[in-house]
Amino acid sequence: SPEEIKAKALDLLNKKLHRANKFGQDQADIDSLQRQINRVEKFGVDLNSKLAEELGLV
């Protein structure tokens, strides 16, 4: 269901964000992850996106 997909995506992105902060990645990478999280919260996951591929939806 779209809600489950959204939850999985947010979980994955939050893990990536945590790792980025923990290991001191570029601020641009961290900002990009934050924008992705905001986009998923607002609009859900686009099944044509790279994120959908990472989640194994495509």
Rank of each mutant, 00 (worst) to 15 (best):
S1T: 13
P2Q: 12
P2L: 13
P2T: 11
P2I: 11
E3D: 13
E3H: 07
E3I: 07
E3Q: 08
E3P: 05
E4D: 11
E4M: 08
E4S: 09
E4G: 09
E4V: 08
I5A: 06
I5K: 03
K6Y: 03
K6D: 02
K6F: 03
K6Q: 05
K6G: 02
A7Y: 10
A7D: 07
A7H: 08
A7S: 10
A7T: 09
K8R: 13
K8D: 03
K8C: 07
A9D: 00
A9L: 06
L10C: 02
L10W: 01
L10P: 00
L10M: 05
L10Q: 02
D11V: 09
D11I: 11
L12Y: 14
L12F: 12
L12T: 04
L13V: 00
N14T: 10
N14S: 08
N14M: 12
K15A: 13
K16W: 09
K16V: 03
L17Y: 04
L17Q: 01
H18M: 13
H18D: 15
H18Y: 13
H18C: 13
R19D: 15
R19V: 10
A20C: 11
N21P: 02
K22T: 12
K22L: 14
K22N: 07
F23P: 04
F23V: 09
F23N: 14
F23T: 13
F23Q: 12
F23R: 09
G24Q: 08
G24W: 06
G24V: 05
G24F: 06
Q25Y: 14
Q25K: 13
Q25W: 15
Q25C: 15
Q25G: 15
D26K: 10
D26A: 14
D26Q: 10
Q27R: 10
Q27Y: 06
Q27C: 08
A28F: 08
A28T: 10
A28L: 08
A28K: 13
A28V: 09
A28S: 11
D29Q: 14
I30D: 02
D31C: 08
D31I: 10
D31E: 13
D31G: 04
D31A: 09
S32E: 15
S32G: 07
S32F: 13
L33H: 00
L33Y: 03
L33W: 03
Q34E: 10
Q34T: 11
R35C: 14
R35S: 13
Q36I: 13
Q36V: 07
Q36D: 08
Q36R: 03
Q36Y: 08
Q36F: 06
I37M: 03
I37Q: 02
I37H: 02
I37S: 01
I37L: 06
N38T: 12
N38D: 14
N38C: 10
R39A: 15
R39Q: 14
R39M: 15
R39C: 15
V40H: 00
V40C: 02
V40G: 00
V40Y: 01
V40Q: 00
V40I: 10
E41I: 14
E41D: 04
E41T: 11
E41N: 10
K42F: 05
K42A: 06
K42N: 07
K42W: 06
K42T: 07
K42R: 12
F43T: 04
F43H: 10
G44P: 01
G44N: 02
V45I: 13
V45R: 00
V45L: 12
D46E: 08
D46N: 08
D46T: 06
L47N: 04
N48L: 07
N48K: 10
N48I: 04
N48V: 05
S49E: 04
S49P: 02
S49A: 03
S49W: 03
S49C: 04
S49H: 03
K50T: 10
L51F: 07
L51N: 02
L51Q: 02
L51K: 01
A52C: 04
A52Q: 02
A52W: 11
A52L: 07
E53K: 14
E53H: 11
E53I: 12
E54D: 06
L55T: 02
L55G: 01
L55K: 00
L55R: 00
G56F: 06
G56K: 06
L57M: 07
V58D: 08
V58Q: 09
V58S: 13
